[in-house]
């Protein structure tokens, strides 16, 4: 049992959970996503990679790569 609420990270068809208290950049590293490949949003607002994550935060990642 954890005594903290995890941070949820949602991206195309996948969901991850990380510990709160770390910066966005480190959370992305934990789940093997390059910051260059995504825009991070929280409550519909864009946030930068140095933003600290609070318990219960829900991040949505907008993938930026397209093409073919």
């Amino acid at each position: 049992m954890t005594d903290w609420q995890p941070v949820k990270i949602i991206t195309r068809g996948k969901e991850y959970e990380v510990r709160p208290g770390m910066a966005v950049k480190h959370a992305l590293e934990k789940i093997n996503i390059l910051p260059e490949s995504v825009i991070v949003t929280r409550n519909g607002e864009l946030i930068t990679e140095d933003e600290l994550l609070a318990p219960g935060d829900v991040l949505k990642l907008v993938m930026v790569i397209s093409g073919g």
Binding site: L34, P35, E36, S37, I65, S66, G67, G68
Partner: peptide, 22 residues
């Protein structure tokens, strides 16, 4: 994404370049 773009080489190259950019 365009349904036919899945696995496209250009996307692979973009990912490689993003690793370098990182």
């Amino acid at each position: 994404e365009c349904p036919y773009a899945l696995g496209a080489t250009s996307i692979y190259y973009k990912e490689l370049l993003n690793k370098l950019e990182s």
